[in-house]
């Protein structure tokens, strides 16, 4: 410790930091690891077409959602006085017709499943640790099921005479 040859004699580009380096040839620092690497122990093909179905569903539901969502936005926000017209009576009036009930139900289910599956992909992409994935997906699926059920319940049991 007392010797002054502590200054590492190195031609390396990485400048000598103050004091003695913690690392040398025999004690290298940990290398900079990339997340979740593939090794020869990575499980091989899991059977089933779930990912393909999910991929197809994103595209098909997307196409249907274009119509549903744009129609929805037009009716709610643009046509016939815009947002100012929206009120209990407006909603009650539309849900009196089975057509709009089915429209809204379809939009609810498709958007929720589409959005949930989209978030699932994002979790798969970004959450590195198995536990983080598990919890985030658990939260996602719970919220999705809750919202879909609550929404469907409201659409089916809506009572225009409630007070």
């Amino acid at each position: 410790m007392s010797s002054n040859n502590a200054v590492t004699e190195t031609s390396s580009a990485i400048g000598v930091v103050e004091g003695e380096s913690l690392y040398d040839v025999d004690h290298p620092a940990p290398v900079i690891e990339a997340p979740r690497q593939r090794t020869n122990k990575t499980p091989k093909a899991t059977r089933g077409n779930f990912e393909m179905a999910a991929w197809l569903f994103m595209r098909l539901s997307g196409v249907v959602l274009v119509v549903l969502v744009i129609g929805h936005l037009l009716i709610q926000l643009v046509l016939d006085g815009g947002v100012s017209k929206i009120g209990f009576a407006f909603v009650a009036g539309r849900w009196a017709s089975p057509f709009w009930q089915v429209w809204d139900l379809l939009m609810l289910w498709l958007a929720m499943l589409h959005g949930a599956n989209g978030l699932r992909t994002i979790i798969n992409d970004y959450a590195e640790r198995a536990n983080t994935r598990l919890w985030l997906k658990g939260l996602l699926y719970t919220a999705t099921v809750f919202t879909i059920l609550l929404g469907s319940l409201v659409i089916f049991t809506f009572d225009p005479n409630i007070r």
């Binding site: 580009a13 990485i14 690392y23 040839v25 290398v31």
Partner: peptide, 11 residues
Amino acid sequence: RFNPEVSADAS
């Protein structure tokens, strides 16, 4: 640059 024999950080 990164040299684990010198530093744990890249620079």
